[in-house]
């Protein structure tokens, strides 16, 4: 609750500073006709130009940090992808080159303040290029995304809350043909919540030994095992709750035992999102992709899906 109030105060400040009436474009045609007869025709001309560059999307993020981290986490998995913007928020779904992993991101409208999207628009972006632009933003900067109708660029504005620095970038967009997969809500046999750093550590440690890890969830706990040329290793976690630091809780919900093998390289890649959320949720069922979910503020999320390895072909 204290968080929400602080957001409101910043909101108010922002509004007064920019003083842009929402949807002012709809009223401009009348204004232009009126002004064009007056001697101040130059002003009218300026107005006209503004009204042509109709802003379709305007999304303001309190902290550039969020988008920076999200893009950082995805950019090593996919190269180009569409940011699908609609009135409920900004969504992203993309697969890696081999189509064995899928990333699904949802930044709900509530994560932005304000958020306005008049029509559904897909912003095709090369993530490496976006990273380059985002590098110019400080973590605490206020970030505003803007796009026109039928855009060929994505406009990014970084405002430093501390100083009155304002930087503005246009990123060229691209046409990307992407197929969207419908992902049904699944009841998983095992759901494991753990600190995201813990999951990252396990992945990194086992990666030193092998290319793949087998995850076994049973009533005893969850066991990550791997076997490689130099030897083998296993990490076992049991349900555990820490009263002082609830972030370190490990929670295992199990309806039936599961054992699946995954590529560690991909998992390590997913772990780049560890900075986004203190905890990570692993959902497993036999013969379906593993879901690795990082919950974000609000009901936004970043989810990764990875196909299990079937058959021992090592």
């Amino acid at each position: 609750m204290p968080e929400a109030s602080s957001r409101n105060s910043i909101n108010a400040k922002y509004k007064t500073r920019l003083a842009i009436p929402p949807h002012f474009q709809q009223t401009t045609p009348a204004k232009i006709t009126k002004l064009s007869r007056t001697p101040r025709s130059l002003a009218a001309f300026c107005f006209q130009e503004i009204s042509f560059s109709y802003t379709l999307l305007e999304a303001r993020l309190e902290q550039a940090d969020l988008l920076k981290k999200v893009v950082d986490a995805i950019k090593d998995l996919v190269q180009d992808c569409n940011f699908d913007c609609n009135d409920s928020g900004v969504a992203l779904q993309a697969m890696d080159n081999s189509h064995v992993a899928l990333v699904s991101m949802m930044l709900k409208a509530e994560s932005f303040s304000p958020y306005r999207c008049d029509r559904n628009v897909a912003l095709g972006v090369n993530l490496t290029s976006l990273t380059k632009v985002l590098r110019a933003a400080q973590n605490e900067d206020i970030l505003t995304l803007k796009a026109e109708d039928a855009p060929d660029v994505l406009n990014l504005v970084f405002e430093s809350s501390a100083s009155d620095r304002l930087s503005e970038y246009d990123l060229k967009l691209m046409d990307i043909d992407q197929e969207h997969l419908g992902i049904p809500d699944t009841e998983y046999a095992a759901t494991i919540s753990m600190p995201s750093t813990e999951f990252k550590r396990i992945c990194m440690d086992l990666m030193a030994l092998s290319e793949s890890v087998s995850i076994e969830a049973s009533k005893d706990g969850v066991k990550f095992t791997c076997a490689g040329d130099i030897g083998n290793g296993a990490v076992t976690l049991r349900s555990h709750s820490n009263v002082d630091k609830p972030d370190l809780d490990v929670d295992i919900e199990l309806t039936e035992p599961v054992s699946l093998t995954f590529s560690l390289k991909y998992l390590v890649n997913f772990c780049k999102a560890a900075g986004l959320s203190k905890s990570v949720k692993l959902c497993l069922s036999n013969e379906v992709p593993l879901l690795v979910e990082y919950a974000l503020a609000g009901s936004s999320y970043l989810r990764f899906y990875l196909a299990p390895k079937i058959g021992d072909e090592e």
Binding site: L181, G182, S263, V288, P289, I310
Partner: peptide, 15 residues
């Protein structure tokens, strides 16, 4: 990465 034995996402999720 060796993706042998891994099915494509489109095998799990429908378009």
């Amino acid at each position: 990465v060796n993706v042998s034995g891994m099915k494509k996402m489109s095998d799990f999720f429908k378009k």
